[in-house]
Nucleic acid binder design. Structure first.
Length: 576
DNA sequence: CATTTTGACGCT
DNA sequence: AGCGTCAA
């Protein structure tokens, strides 16, 4: 079944967020965003403070289109950029606890996703500024209520087409130039080539794409009007081509790629502009097979690819032909998040300092957990530290119970333990160049804010009405169950067997709402919390916890990934 | 002085 | 669980 996919990319996104913060000062100005002012320690500057920096040589991570027009490019150092454009305004990213604080951009990005969800049934958040939408259903509905000729006219008025002269010119520029922006991209101009399409006879699927383009245009308009962010988009029959199409015309424009235009679009497209081939794999393909374009790869036979050691030949060819069809994932929020910092030329040398940074990271992460938890009734169960030294990069992970806890301490303690697990007996000369902390493996929590008590009751007072998004990534564990998993099990399934109740434990809980087996495994502080809860409940003479029906949580089994594709189109399989 | 700070995912 | 790759 053919789908209609829209791929949306926010224009000069970090700059746009800064303009939104201070429109009177920044709107319409050549603007760039850099990470820090200097490598020296300086006071934190929050999002609402003045963050304009006049000196400092940090690399630019975002450049407004006004600045690009003056020759400023991403990755230039700020000093270099000021030479190219003396009136350039450079803004540094907010800082908090001595590190970059990207929450301004993350929070705005989440608002964008919320709006886009009104326009598409399936929404895949791909990064802070990129979203893929499956708008097949919305496009179909539009065609049911509006004459297709009218839909086509609307779409043509607001879209480019991939086979137009200017689109094809844009398709030929290099990966690097395309990423740095400007060259080959345009302010909004439509030439006659686009209009010719309007005279063509459209297939019924073409009409569906045109309808999708109208939907996407409406979505972009909503984002612009409600949040002030402009974005660009591609519309095509699959995610990969939609993304390529999205890159053809920026800013604030959209491009339709009809199936019949795919071949000509890919013919001269630099190979490394194909999603997933921008790195090592793409380089090896280029050099070993002596090709430079997607069209070139499409002309290589499957057997030659296999002989050259590229085991993923089928998917590579599908990508080169524009037929790779990775479905838009139904995931509008993060599966993990974290906090990290590079200690440029001043590595962390001892445990105490590392502990302090980990505590900072934990605090920041916990703030995000609280927001996420309130919105989605979920909490992470894994904590991972990540440590890079000159010689190595390692991660260490352990389980953590967070639930509705109101303290970052569990994360802090985990992080400190994990640090020691990595350091072993060494306490000095750690030479940590990059230190990071993250959380992942979210589980659903009972729908309302509640104490740990609810997680342990056989007949929970609160149950999620609908599975939250994290339900789709849950899987029943076949391995030894962790405490967190036991808790989850207790909270969400009815207990069929009667557990052997240890007399000592059961005496704590006359109503037998707590599984003593579970209770016994709990860390002391949680046991304490439970006992507190119990006395509170007894004082309030809690109503019977009742029983009757329990919702059986539906847990989708994680699909066994038998074969790797050139993936989700971003993580190609490594040939052996 | 300077490609930082994130995030997803495949392989083993 | 841990490592490596790709990407914005």
């Amino acid at each position: 079944m053919s789908r209609v996919v829209g791929f949306i990319d926010l224009d000069a996104y970090y700059c746009a967020c800064e303009v939104k913060q201070k429109p009177s000062l920044l709107a319409g100005k050549p603007l760039a965003v850099c990470m820090y002012e200097t490598w020296k320690k300086s006071p934190d500057r929050s999002a609402d403070m003045d963050r304009i920096v006049k000196s400092g040589g940090a690399g630019l991570i975002a450049v407004s289109y006004e600045a690009r027009a003056m020759g400023v490019k991403r990755q230039m150092s700020a000093n270099e950029a000021r030479k190219a454009c003396p009136e350039l305004i450079t803004v540094m990213v907010p800082t908090k606890n001595g590190k970059a604080d990207l929450s301004l951009y993350k929070e705005n990005g989440e608002k964008v996703v919320e709006i886009l969800q009104e326009f598409a049934g399936i929404v895949e958040k791909r990064s802070v500024d990129e979203v893929a939408l499956d708008v097949t259903d919305a496009a179909q509905k539009l065609l049911e209520t509006t004459p297709k000729e009218l839909v086509a006219r609307q779409a043509v008025n607001v879209s480019h087409f991939a086979d137009s002269e200017i689109s094809l010119k844009a398709s030929k520029i290099s990966h690097e130039a395309a990423r740095r922006g400007h060259e080959g991209q345009h302010e909004y101009t439509k030439n006659d080539d686009d209009e010719k399409n309007h005279l063509l006879k459209y297939s019924s699927f073409d009409y569906l794409l045109l309808a999708g383009a109208v939907v996407i245009n409406n979505a972009r308009k909503a984002v612009r009007e409600r949040l002030g962010f402009s974005c660009s988009a591609g519309i095509a029959a699959n995610k990969m081509i939609a993304k390529v199409g999205c890159g053809l015309h920026k800013p604030n424009q959209q491009t339709i790629v009809f199936p019949r235009s795919v071949a000509v679009l890919l013919k001269d497209l630099p190979l490394n502009r194909l999603p997933g081939l921008g790195g090592d794999l793409g380089n090896r393909i280029s050099s070993q097979l002596n090709i430079t374009t997607a069209g070139g790869l499409a002309n290589i036979s499957r057997s030659i690819l296999l002989n050259a050691g590229f085991q993923d030949a089928d998917n590579l060819l599908a990508a080169a032909n524009g037929t790779l069809d990775e479905p838009v994932k139904n995931r509008a929020n993060y599966k993990s998040f974290g906090s990290s910092k590079t200690f440029y030329k001043h590595p962390i040398t001892n445990l105490t300092i590392a502990d302090q940074w980990l505590s900072n990271f934990a605090q920041e992460i916990f703030d995000r957990i609280k927001n996420d938890r309130n919105q989605r009734n979920r909490a992470p169960t894994n904590v991972t530290i990540s440590i890079t030294t000159d010689k190595s990069h390692v991660t260490r992970t352990e389980k953590v119970h967070i639930g509705w806890s109101d303290s970052p301490q569990p994360i802090v303690r985990s992080a400190h333990r994990l640090l020691r697990r990595w350091a072993g007996t060494r306490t000095a000369h750690l030479d940590i160049v990059v230190l990071g902390l993250g959380v992942s493996n979210f589980i659903d929590l009972p729908a309302n804010k509640a104490s740990v008590m609810d997680l342990l009751t056989r007949n929970p007072l609160h149950q999620s009405k609908k599975p939250s998004s994290s339900a789709e990534i849950m899987q029943p564990s076949k391995k030894k169950r962790t405490i967190a998993e036991l808790l989850y099990q207790q909270a969400t399934t009815s207990t069929k067997k009667t557990t052997t109740v240890g007399k000592k434990d059961s005496s704590f809980f006359p109503s037998s709402n707590i599984d003593p087996e579970v209770f016994a495994q709990l860390p002391p502080e949680i046991k304490a919390e439970l006992l507190d809860d119990r006395t509170r409940l007894l004082r309030q003479s809690a109503p019977s916890l009742g029983n009757s029906h329990l919702e059986q949580r539906q847990v989708k089994k994680k699909k066994k990934t038998a074969t790797t594709t050139i993936d989700s189109f971003f993580a190609p399989r490594r040939p052996r």
